[in-house]
Amino acid sequence: MQRDTRLRRDDSAISIPFPCAVRPASSLRAVLFLLSAILVGGTFSYAENSLVNKHAPPFARVDLHTSRAIHLADYRGKVVLLNFWATWCAPCLLEMPRFVQWQRQYGKSGLQVVGVSMDDEDSPVRSLDRKLNLNYPVVMGDEKLGELYGGILGLPVTYLIDRNGVVRARFQGEADLGKIEEQLKHLLSAPLPASRPH
């Protein structure tokens, strides 16, 4: 079993105690300090591991409704509300009816909700999906997808991705749905990206 003090060593998620102003003369010492800090294990900073203002990591998963693969890139040009949830997560269940409503209300304006279930098995997900009449794609997540999105170590987590595929907001836990909707409408009001030449 892999032991690690961070989730990812190779990105900006690593927060290492380091002097703010490093004089050029001490750069070698600083590099050595940095290397030693990495070797002994830097501190993973969960809060800093933000995807905001970065391109949303691409992924492809099978939609439980259609049994066909969906690619996040397919939704370029739309505003994507990417919601990580699970059937056992009470705050998730409180949010989802609103997402269904928003998909109905803002779908024509370019909203696409995508649900990623972090359940261990798909059977309860299929059951709940049918019962709640979810009107958006639902895919199964896994630890790889969780890490890709900054570590989904508690639910719910919702990302807002703009029409250009850039993450604009991340909400964790019992989020203020009014705030999410406000940002959603702001993103929907942005002009469509110029189409790429074929």
């Binding site: 079993m1 690690d4 003090t5 989730l7 993973f44 900073s45």
Partner: peptide, 10 residues
Amino acid sequence: VAKGYPIEKG
């Protein structure tokens, strides 16, 4: 995790 306590994966 955010508090810097150690974790394992797997």
